[in-house]
């Protein structure tokens, strides 16, 4: 008697149950396979992010061929400056040394990026007001970029 009068509620419950069931089925089908592999994210995302191509080969790659530069550089003030910091991204060159040749650098523009005097730079960092210092002359007229200290007859200046 009572159950009969609540029949419409059971029908409604049936509609809800069907909805929930469909949701569970659809969900199990749509959740990416690798989700939860390492945590609450798509495990394949790691592989995809790792696959991004490299632009900067890294100094280790440069040094494999350019050991002469490494020797020169390691004795000078620029020992800690990595190759591509000045030469730019050269992974393509490292991939194909013959086919891709790096651009020649303009020291008049390049060196001031670091060495132009600025009151906010650490005081012990070597810096010059470039116009006063060289009057627009390219830096490599006097300095060797890979070992920039100028050696005079009396020793290092």
């Amino acid at each position: 008697m009572k159950l009969k009068d609540a029949a419409h509620l059971f029908r409604l419950a049936g509609v809800f149950a069907a909805g929930i069931l469909i949701f569970i089925l659809v969900r199990s089908y749509l959740v990416p396979k690798s989700f939860g592999q390492y945590g609450h994210f798509r495990g394949d995302a790691l592989t995809e992010i790792k696959a991004q191509p490299i632009s900067y080969a890294g100094h280790q790659a440069c040094e494999a061929c350019h050991s002469d530069v490494l020797d020169l550089k390691s004795k000078g003030k620029h020992a800690q400056v990595n190759c591509e910091a000045c030469h730019g991204p050269l992974a393509k060159h490292a991939d194909d040394p013959g086919g891709v040749t790096p651009e020649k650098l303009d020291t008049a523009k390049l060196c001031v990026r670091c060495h132009e005097a600025n009151s906010a730079k650490p005081k012990k960092f070597p810096q010059v007001a470039s116009m006063e210092h060289s009057g627009g002359l390219a830096c490599n007229e006097c300095h060797t970029p890979h070992s920039p200290a100028i050696v005079t007859e009396g020793g290092k200046k």
């Binding site: 008697m1 009969k4 009068d5 609540a6 419409h8 509620l9």
Partner: peptide
């Protein structure tokens, strides 16, 4: 919208009211 149930007897409505 009736979900195929047209039971609107007093008992049914009382249940509806309580739910």
């Amino acid at each position: 919208l009736t979900l195929g149930s047209s039971n609107i007897s007093e008992n049914a409505l009382a249940i509806d009211n309580r739910v």
